[in-house]
Every structure is written in C-alpha cells, then in structure tokens.
Nucleic acid binder design. Sequence first.
RNA 1: GCGCCCGUAGCUCAGUUGGAUAGAGCGGCUGGCUUCGAACCAGUAGGUCGGGAGUUCGAAUCUCUCCGGGCGCACCA
Length: 665
Amino acid sequence: MFHSLETRIQSAFRACLADKFGVQLDIAGFDIVIEQPKQTSFGDLALPVAFQLAKSLKQAPRKIAADLVEAVGTIPGVAAMEIAGNGYINVRLDRGAFGAALLSGGPEAVAAADPGKTIVEHTNINPNKAAHIGHLRNAVLGDTFVRMLRTAGRTVEVQNYIDNTGVQVADVVVGFHFLEHKTPADVAALIAADSKHARFDYLCWDLYARTSQYYKDNPDSLAWRAQTLHEVEAGHGELAEMAHLVADAIVDCHLATMLRLGIRYNVLPRESEILHLKFWASCFELLKERKAIYFEEEGKNKGCWVMPSSAFRGADEANEDSKVIVRSNGIVTYVGKDIAYQLWKFGLLGKDFFYKPHTAYPDGQQVWVSTATPQSETSQIENQAPAFGKADTVYNVIDVRQSYLQDVVVAGLRALDFEQQAERSIHFSYEMVALSPRCCADLGIELSEEDAKRPYVEVSGRKGLGVKADDLMDKLIESALGEVASRHAEDPVETQRAVATEIAMGALRYFLLKFTRTTVIAFDFQEALSFVGETGPYVQYATVRARNILKKLQERGEALPDFGTELSAESMARQLANEDAWQMLLVASKVGSALDRAIATGEPAHLAKYAFLLAQTFSNFYQEFPILIEPDREKKVFLLWMTGFFARQLERTLAILGITVPVYM
RNA sequence: GCGCCCGUAGCUCAGUUGGAUAGAGCGGCUGGCUUCGAACCAGUAGGUCGGGAGUUCGAAUCUCUCCGGGCGCACCA
C-alpha cells in the first residue's frame, strides 16, 4: 500500500519535471529518490530531488523545492508538502485516506511482472556426503530469493544440479571399494540400513574424509580415482554401479534435509545425462563454429582448446592466462560442461533432457529428475513432465569463490553472440560460512597453530571439518523444546515438539538470512542457538501474540467487529491522529517497499531486517495499547483492526522468508 | 604479482545506491509481570565509520593512496 503511494508520488514529480521544468530524468541521469525522513516529525516521506537539480538549474535548492511543490499541485493521498532544511521536500500523507484504503484492501500495485521465466539454481551439493552449514546458506538464500520473486509475480523454476559423476562421488566409491573392499550389494545394504543411528550420509562424510587423507599419505592411490572416474563415465562395471547407488541415496538425504527447512525443487538436472545426451558435443561445435575458442598450437596450453583471456578479463591484460576448455587429452573441463549447461538453461543448446518423476512432496508437488531416455508411451498424463529450461533470466546461487569460473561461463555466452542471455546470467554470489575458533573448540576439532590464529576457519568436506546440517537442526530443536516445555508442560509432547521444530527452523533460516551476502559468517553456536533479540523466534513471537489477542477476544465471547462498517474514513483519521499509532501503521504497511528493495538489491537480508523492524514495531504497539480492555468503542475497534493488520503483514513477510508461525510459543 | 570482498559501539552486524543529529541485536548498568503470555518492553553508558588526501552544497557511501584481514587467479570441480 505504502509502496503504491511511493510510486504515485514519484511519477507525479517525474511528470512535473518533464512538463514544467524541461528536465528529462533519463537524460539527467538520476531518478526521483524517496527516502524516509531522519525524524518522524519531519513527515512521512522525503524527497531530496531539489539538491540534485540545483546544479543544472543554477538555483538554490530551497527555491527549486518551493517551485516544485507549487508546480506539482495536489497528489491523491498526500495531505501536505513542506520545504525543510536546505531544500528537502517533506511529504505528509492523508492519514484517514491511507487507513481507509488499507481497510478496504486497496489494490496493492503489483509491479508489472516480467512475463518470462526465471530459473534459480541453488543447493547443488555434491552427492557424496551429508550437507553442512555452508550448503544451508546456499539453499536458504536461494529458496528465499525464489519466494521473493514469486511473491513479486515472477514465474520461477527451481533447479538443483546434481554432479553424480564427479570426483567427489568417485572418491567415496574409492573408499568403499579399495579401502573397505565392499561390493555394490554391501553398499546397498548400508543404504537400506540407513537410520538415525547409522546414517548413510554421515557414514559417507567420514569415509570421504578418510579417503582424502589416504590420497595425501599415498599419492599413488590417486590412480584409483582415475580408474573410478573412467568407469563411471563409461557407465558399466561395479564401480559405476556403486557410484549410482551412492549418489542416488545421498540425493535423497539432501532432499530430506532441505525439506526440513521448507526448501523444495522443481527439477534435478544430472551430470550423468549431460554426458550421455552429449550436451558438450553440441556446445563444442557451436563454440568452434563461432570461433569462441581456438586450438592452441604452442606454449604451456599446446594441444588444448582454449578461450582467450580477453573474453573474460579486462582487455588490458589479454594474452595472459587463457582458460583451457578442452584438455590436450580431449576431455572437456568442468567450465566447458558448465557453458553447455548454461546454454541449455536458456534453450540455446538445441537439445533437452528427458525427465521422469523423482519424488513427490507431501502436498503432491512433483520433483522431476533428468533421464537419458524417453519415458514409455504408456505413461499416464501425470507423468508428463512440464517444459523445463528455456528461461530468459538465470540466477546461479554459487559461493563467491567461483566468481572466476562464472565469469568464464558468461564470457562463453557472449563469445557465442548470446549477448542478451549473457546479460541475464546472474551469479548470485555469497560469502562462505566459516567456523569461529570457539566453535571448533565446541566441536572438539583440533586446529593447527596457524589456523588457531585466524579469525575463522574454512569449512572443508574433504577434511570432514564442518557442522552437519541435520546435527545443527536437531540441536536447535532440542534447545527450543526446552523453552517450549518450560512454558507448556501440560501440552502433549507431540505438539510441543512440532512447535519447537517450527521455532528451530525459523531461528536457523533467520540466522542465515540476517547477514548480507558479502559478509563471511563465522559460525557460532551461541549466536545460532539464540532465540532472543534479532532472531526468527522474536518475529514469530510477535505474530503469535497478535493472533492471541484476536483469539482471546472470541474466547471472551466477543465477536470480531465488522471493520468495514464500524471504521469510517473519519474515524480512521481520528484514531490515526495519534502519532504513535500512525507511525506504527506506516511501518506495517511497508512490506511491498521492503520486498521491492530486497529484490532490486538482491539482498534477502533487507527483507529479514524489515521483518524484525515490523515485529519490533508490533511489540511496541502491544506494550503501548491495551486492546481488549479499551473502553472507547471506536478506539477498540481501531486497535483490533490494527492488530489484525499487523498479524497479516507479519505472516506475509515471514512466509516470504520461508518461516512458519507456530500455534503458540 | 594481478583481481574481487571486508574493516562502523566491548562483541556480531545493518546503513534504503551521495542527503538532515551514524543505527540494531547481544553483552553491561537501572527499572517494569495481580493487565491481551516478560522468547517482551522502557531507560542508560558506549563511535577519530582502519589512517591520510581528493571530488562537492553535502562522504560511512564515490576516486586515489597506505595499513590490516579474507578469498580467488590449474590440462581440479
């Protein structure tokens, strides 16, 4: 609601500048900025536009501001505009009209939705071990961004890429076969025996670390990896069979882990199909045909197909460090395959996967997985896969350390003349999750002397160094359960546990979202386990309290008023003359603005911050206005309406963050 | 060596794209449950925005430079 007013004011000023001042903003190089005044007493909105115009119009900002206010005239919903300071235009809204519009559920201006499809790829965990805290940051960030885009009206497809034929899977297979002398049947038995106390993904976590260490101690054993990779690629033999067993089982583990946090996918494109359907071959032809890569005849890259560095670096340091795309032995590198995959996402490869149903979520939503062969024609209609890929915008949620490779992929598109798609390939990067030294101590991890001096230590699957996602969630649930039990001892244990789970997941999601993407999270149990202050549970608690007031009203035998008939615009104006109530309503009506800004900046953290502000504001409201015992009827009805409005706004915001609201706290 | 990111209160972090007196949480101190549940609220202390120079009406924000920290720069993924 607030957001549509903002845009209305913006366009009024824009039009006025064009018509009466001859200023075209797109030419002038700036747009009308609307900000929140430093002090609430200044007004509801502030425009510093006069400052920006001062130079080109060669007039004092104060005078420009005055002329501008005069020229703009009246704007619906705006009560007054005043000049302040050196030339600020402070806007005061028509409170009664604002409240009335909110009450009637006035049209929330939905930004003209992009008609095309957006792909967001996230999670992408190598299917060879349990997920850890770093993977959670990726998935929560990606999932939240998806929710943001969908709320804004965009069509979004969520992809989770599965590298089931890579080195990491091979290393676990090496561990099973060469170190533990297990057969595929043995591994299948381990998978079947998977339970809380013998988790297959945890077992692989340890085995992977052990294999990595073994390579270090016995470098000759790396030949096992090469042999395994070779057989996996060829697609037959015991090692290949085992790789399939491991990868498929671990993918199921990951999906289950992520579902605990409400994270879902539409499709799982797999590396094995990229190989079998020869995606690379098509891409290779295209790259050669359009001269995006060339065959190196000399130097250290002799015999390789390379992309010149000028394609992905500044032109100044051309000829330096070209990127090898195809090795001298004829095998394509990871980046090469990634270019093919990126082309597929845009529907530019001229090839597609086949698909089959993988799993269904409890509500029936289907996850699809790629296959190399068409589904049989007897398949039922519900087995018909939707059209995947063919996006016009692609977000790849990948940590910042892969920036260089993402640049090469985009350069590949550009070199193929897919300029627009290159422009719309967005590396949604984020910093890593590291472990604080104290956290390592908590985990009983011994650090080398130099590591101990560092501000934080990088998580490493290879070293088995990290906090497993499910362990962390379990720990959070236990902690939350303690809090719940102390307040609701009389309640059935199952309900207590369900509530504790929602609180724990809310805490975890919020914790991972409150940091901006460029911030390294030095993970700390104490902070992550906190339920007070700027946390998910704080926001959930505010929502539960708002609901409780309305519930209490009915428990006392009072009906919820019919706000439409009891609250006229006049009574809204009367009630909103109360400065505190007005300021609180303003904050509560800014979900749209907050979402818009968070999408524009690509920072889910901004929305998380707003959720906290909203909850804080409600807590103040709760404290300041006793509602149920309010003697004045009009005021009571108004306060009840505010309470409901707060509850809805809190629920909306939390839903976008993927945080649920427990029945009680 | 080159590139990217970070440096803001004791600690952990925001800062609406250059705007008004730099904010929040935690921790510290003081106070508030016989009220719609205190996982809450109110008050208070705490700042050369890493240092320096520049750009302009105006800089935590942009430029340069120095200092400190992190991450990249494979015929690995």
